[in-house]
Design a binder for these strands. Structure first.
Length: 565
RNA sequence: UGUCCGAUGGUGUAACGGUAGCACAAGGCCCUUUGGAGGCUUUUGUCAUGGUUCGAAUCCAUGUCGGACAGCCA
């Protein structure tokens, strides 16, 4: 894969060429208030990718400045997801805390003492003040994008008073929300974020990482740039909505008069993907309202959901590479993701035979009780994957879709009086269709051309169709979960309430018959059920019950053909 | 009636003043003991109008359209 190229990497390459920084240092700074999704994967691939390509380092940092929304469960999931995504790819680029070994993330909350001192420094420079305005008043004083705000009456407090008040805020003397620390910038700035933004607020809340040490917490804008500075970040890459915050980022570091070089912020467009939603708020809603089974439901666009579904980190990285990095807010076709998944799985998946919706076939000229071992290829894309044996018996199952009494034109599969190849086995001919009293097909009685299997006299005979099958007596049962897109429209965010567009058929469960080797299916192993799709074992599998997830179906040219009519 | 950002086939991107290319999607053909994979192939594009230039997707101006911003969220 060629090295990616985009406007941010161009900037980085330029800085390296002019020796602006001794080493490139990026960071991935999620807030632990939800699980990571595929949009974060884009950011992870960007930040760790840059570190990889330019000999740099990338820190994983919890952006945990709001104790009321953050939880350790999220911290743990983030660590697991990042580890999984960059494993074997960018492990060497991962930044470690001094003395750190395993994947222990950085925490913005580890810098609370230093951030506090920087706030004091700003007060001492006369660049920040304690404001007693209520939240409502603060809103009102801020004005709006199209008209200027007005100065807070507390704006010109004495430095000594500000210092005293700030210390007492820290000491817990004031209730929740009573006062704030604000930067003294410009209430009439056309950029709303420069209208004396709040730097610290009072929150008498326990923090998942610092416990009860603090009752004042820095705002994102104040904590983020300082955290970047403390860690020696050179390129602070975030999404487009922070573009208007960049002047504030620069103002804070500039007015703190810190030794150079300072980090700089660069913005790119977040990922929007068809037929799903990407905001943590909405994903959380799907979870809390039990529309999905959890953050790692295989239908979720979360990293843990995709992992559980059977998507590999390589596929996700390829996807990230393919979509590129720009400042244009587009909607990525979900087919791009699906292609990346299929391309990856095609190379690695072990082929197996499994019948999702069985219909019984009796080979009338094959002896009862006989079990013939036939040889099957594990992966035609990978000779090293070897071969295996599959049992052939008189009674088999084939897919319901693979037989039609009155087939349309170009239907290559089994029909009354017609012939079809059973993969790795014989050519069979359908002699008789057996139905029950209500007219449903219960059994197909067929004869096999017993010379037609591989190496046989008539093995070269051409029949138009080849279908998969399993031995009825040797098959193992499995619950197979077939997932479809979560929404029925490509952009559920665009037209009102996203939940109106939920796909009610996003999960279908079938009782499948699988070839015996699937009895030993292993977690993490990817399978291709021939002619159907890619599958992997679900974590809910028990010794009594095998549960299998469909990662994605195979491309289906026939379905396309049928649609044309 | 504010500030900032953006606009290249259906979608996502590349081209850094010099032949508009790639991927996905769509169509066609070949091949196939997976209607998979693979191979070959076709269609479709620089938001508009001016300007600078020998030459503009690229630089400039204006317009149009789209996005972000008014949390004590990040």
């Amino acid at each position: 894969m060629a090295a990616p190229s985009d406007f941010i990497r161009d900037i980085v390459a330029g800085h390296l060429a002019e020796k602006k920084y001794p080493q490139i240092h990026t960071r991935f700074p999620p807030e632990p208030n939800g699980y990571l999704h595929i949009g974060h994967a884009k950011s992870i691939c960007l930040n760790f990718g840059i570190a990889r390509e330019f000999g740099g380092i990338c820190n994983l940092r919890m952006d945990d400045t709001n104790p009321t929304k953050e939880e350790v469960e999220y911290v743990d999931s983030i660590i697991a997801d990042v580890k999984w995504l960059i494993g074997g790819w960018a492990d060497q680029q991962l930044g470690f805390k001094s003395g750190g070994k395993s994947l222990e993330p950085f925490y913005a909350s580890d810098y609370f003492d230093q951030i506090y001192e920087y706030a004091v420094a700003l007060i001492n420079k006369g660049k920040a003040y304690i404001c007693d305005l209520t939240p409502e008043q603060t809103d009102e004083y801020r004005g709006a994008p199209d008209h200027p705000g007005k100065d807070s009456p507390f704006r010109n407090r004495r430095i000594s008073e500000n210092l005293d008040l700030f210390a007492r805020m820290k000491a817990g003397e004031f209730p929740h929300g009573a006062r704030t620390l604000r930067a003294k910038i410009d209430m009439s700035s056309p950029n709303v974020w420069l209208r004396d933004p709040i730097l610290y607020r009072i929150r008498h809340a326990e923090h998942h990482h610092t416990g009860n040490k603090w009752c004042i917490y820095p705002m994102y804008d104040f904590a983020h740039c300082i955290s970047d500075y403390i860690e020696g970040i050179t390129h602070s890459i975030c999404t487009l909505e922070f573009e208007v915050h960049r002047p504030l980022y620069d103002w804070i570091l500039g007015n703190l008069e810190l030794p150079r070089p300072l980090p700089h912020q660069y913005e790119f467009a977040r990922l929007s993907l068809g037929y799903t939603v990407m905001s943590k708020r909405k994903l959380l809603q799907l979870v809390t309202e039990k529309i999905v089974t959890g953050w790692d439901d295989p239908r979720m666009p979360t990293i843990s959901g995709l992992r559980r579904r059977g998507v590999t980190p390589e596929a996700l990285r390829h996807f990230a590479y393919n979509i590129g990095i720009t400042k244009y807010n587009g909607l990525t076709d979900v087919a791009v993701l699906e292609h990346a998944i299929r391309e990856d799985l095609n190379k690695r998946a072990l082929r197996r035979l499994a019948v999702l919706r069985p219909i019984k076939v009796v080979i009338t000229n094959f002896p009862e009780g006989k079990i013939e071992e036939l040889e099957a290829v594990n992966n035609p894309e990978d000779p090293n994957a070897g071969k295996r044996k599959i049992p052939f018996t008189r009674e088999l199952y084939i897919e319901q879709d693979d037989f039609m009494e009155v087939p349309p034109p170009k239907y290559f599969r089994l029909r009354p009086g017609g012939e079809v190849r059973l993969k790795y086995a014989y050519i069979i001919k359908c002699d008789e269709v057996v139905k029950n009293a209500s007219g449903e097909i219960t059994e197909l009685r067929c004869t096999a051309d017993l010379d037609s299997k591989t190496g046989g006299a008539t093995s070269a005979r051409k029949v138009k169709g080849t279908i998969h099958w399993v031995s009825a007596t040797q098959a193992v049962d499995a619950e197979v979960r077939l997932y479809d897109r979560l929404f029925t429209v490509e952009d559920p965010d665009a037209k009102g309430e996203f939940k109106e567009f939920l796909n009610k058929n996003s999960l279908e469960v079938v009782k499948a018959k699988c070839e015996p080797s699937l009895k030993d299916a292993a977690p993490e192993t990817r399978y291709q059920f021939e002619r159907i799709g890619y599958f992997t074992l679900d974590k809910e599998t028990t010794p009594e019950k095998t549960v299998i997830n469909r990662t994605i179906s195979l491309k289906d040219a026939w379905a396309k053909e049928v649609k044309k009519v």
